[in-house]
Design a protein around this nucleic acid. Structure first.
Length: 107
RNA sequence: UCAGUUGACCAGAUGGUCGCUGUGUGUCUGUGAUGGACACAGAGAGGAAAGUCCGAGCAUCAAAAGAACAGGGUGCCAGUUAACGGCUGGUGGAGGCGACUCUAAGGAAAGUGCAACAGAAAUAGACUGCCAUCGAAAGAUGGUGAUGGUGGAAAGGUAGGGCAAGAGCCUACCGGGCGGUUGGCAACAAUCGCCGCUCUGUAAACCCCACUCGAUGCAAGAUUAAGUUUGGAUACAUGUGCGUUCUUUCACAUCCAACAAAAGUAUCGCUUGAACUUAUUGGCGACAGUAAGUCUGGAUAGAUGACCAUCCAAUACAGAACUCGGCUUAUAGUCAACUGUAAAC
RNA sequence: GCAGAGGUGUCCGAGUGGUUUAAGGUGCAGCCCUGGAAAGGCUGUGUGUGAGAAAUUGCACCAAGAGUUCGAAUCUCUUCCUCUGCG
């Protein structure tokens, strides 16, 4: 039910071992999971803005990932880059879609 | 109209679909124990939540009292407050035509330090000039602080008299000091009299005076948690104990060092509070009293979003992290009162 | 969240009230040395803007903005940015 990734140790594990996919606005880290489920964490750097803008971006990303059909048996970390906070909701959604499609192609 | 000053208000609303975090009630379900799922009801960021610049509550440092030293803070007067370096009302000063705004505003006659360069000279005594005496002249001796230029600052200022030339040397006005009177709680103001009146600036330099301050911050700290091993120091003395030293009362059979284990995604601290709303009383006001009513975030990768429609001028700055009172900074819009240097009707 | 440290030419870094002091190194440019290079030696060199034909020279700038002072990179206040520590 809850697809959030919470533990700091899991984050650092995924940064170390995960496969990376880059686009202009995001970096995706992916790692295989032991369970028939997926978990996703968001990383928004302090460079992107103050607390208000970072919170807003995280909320929007959580909304988008809820709607997308995401493959199970995987754990993800979605890292936002500078510039992504200025996009509106629709373009942000397309960018995230493009990111996941790029990863699928690779596999 | 335009330009400006001050004081308030507000921080989108309504409906629909999907989704998040607590609380209460009910149903179902599970464990050694805390629980978990679903349904319904009701709640869910700000005026600055920000900066962390001040002041408190609260917690730990075992608990206190006194003295000396060191260190920090504040600094016109009165009030207000739990407290403050905040706020309110006054006084003095500065700015503006004005409405009004700003003000670290005690002491330089307790002492010490510093004041570059320029200038004759910088807190003291003579470059030029002026005057007198001596001298044929050059110049010497004395008087002068008025002239010149320097400087942030040059011995109160302006005018007249006076003098060899000058000077508060004398007078008037302005300024200053001392004393009295009146008004005011006071800061201070007004006024009268006396004194011709040597004594620069800097205390956001050391300092003096008055008042005041223990340190560390919820990552404080508590529960779970019972207590283990090794080595060293010390038996009527030693060690430790809120900046340092001393004294007194005391506390601990301890104190120091090393190692191991527990434990993290746990629970408490955590939200009812110097609270908020309305009415009313006192006060110029900050604020205080009384009455009635209300319960109003508690997360922990960290909760308020996305889309559509309508209204509309409709958004800017921006997200609680233990909690309050202020200050400062960022910022969209609306309203009211007031001012008029200048221009137009 | 709480506590603390810092910001100076391209870079590192001294200067902690005084006018001709923005030290020194690094980098860059030129010359010497060498058959040629490296190393070494010597000389010059911050940025912006104004004056001048040129040599030269005035003013401003020490993160930003105010204040104290005759005078501020230095003292005080406010803001911005960077870094560090705390279970």
């Amino acid at each position: 039910m809850d697809h959030r990734l919470k533990k700091n140790s899991q984050f650092s594990y995924i940064y170390k071992r995960g496969e990376r996919v880059n686009t202009q606005y995001f970096t995706l880290f992916v790692v295989k999971s032991r369970f028939d489920d997926y978990k996703i964490g968001f990383s928004v750097n302090k460079k992107i803005g103050k607390a208000h803008t970072r919170n807003k971006l995280k909320r929007r990303l959580r909304e988008i990932t809820k709607r997308l059909p995401i493959k199970k048996i995987k754990n993800y970390v979605l890292m936002a880059k500078e510039g992504s906070e200025q996009l509106d909701f629709n373009t942000l959604q397309n960018e995230v879609k493009r990111l996941f499609e790029k990863y699928e192609k690779r596999v």
